[in-house]
């Protein structure tokens, strides 16, 4: 763990939450689970509402799904593969896709379950951890400095769940512009440099 000099940095909060998750995994500690709920449920609801504004019941259902998985899969979580925020994000993402499909928002027979994998500890896999904390800091700082139109496109893609084509229709921009804005944003965030 990288030590953070500042008091109450996002890193401290994350360390606390990770400790709660260990308690859930090892001791089936419900109070620790409640602390995780208090922190993540509002974010999961916000994530759901970003895609379907006003759909409070859907948002509640997503919270239930995701937090249920947190309870059941806490022992599969490995902090060397992803930090807790990222693990929760992938759970929320997968549950949201699953929910949309079950409620036939997609008219397709393709089951997303095995397509969007969960970050689980299956022993030493091919995707080993990279220097995490540094990369997180730089992503966090980078997001704040993105030009508005690039931040907007990332929000559409990641939070509202819009495909490039949908984003292009909504923003009345050519598809190529949408793609290049995503690419520029990622470049600024330095996510693509393989270290």
């Amino acid at each position: 763990m990288v030590s953070m000099a500042n008091q109450r940095s996002p890193g401290d909060k994350l360390t606390e939450l990770s400790a709660s998750l260990s308690l859930v995994a090892n001791n089936r500690d419900k109070e620790a689970f409640a602390r995780l709920f208090d922190h993540y449920a509002p974010l999961i609801r916000a994530y759901s509402l970003a895609r379907e504004p006003g759909a409070d019941l859907v948002a509640d259902e997503l919270v239930q799904e995701v937090m249920t998985r947190v309870w059941l899969k806490a022992d599969k979580y490995n902090d060397r593969l992803a930090n807790l925020n990222t693990w929760i994000f992938t759970l929320a993402r997968n549950c949201r896709i699953d929910y949309l499909r079950r409620n036939s928002r997609y008219l397709t027979e393709i089951d997303p379950t095995d397509i969007f994998n969960e970050i689980e500890d299956d022993g030493p896999g091919p995707f080993q951890q990279v220097q995490q904390s540094r990369a997180e800091e730089s992503i966090r700082a980078g997001l704040k400095q993105l030009p508005r139109e690039q931040a907007e496109i990332l929000t559409k893609v990641y939070l509202e769940g819009k495909s490039h084509q949908q984003a292009s229709n909504e923003l009345k921009l050519p598809l190529g512009t949408v793609k290049s804005r995503v690419r520029l944003a990622l470049k600024k965030l330095e996510v693509l440099v393989v270290r």
């Binding site: 994530y47 930090n83 970050i119 997180e136 990332l154 990641y158 965030l189």
Partner: peptide, 16 residues
């Protein structure tokens, strides 16, 4: 995935 995670952290929390 971390980009998605950071964007999610920056959302305005919607209390449950």
């Amino acid at each position: 995935n971390r980009v998605g995670s950071e964007l999610m952290q920056q959302l305005k929390p919607a209390p449950a």
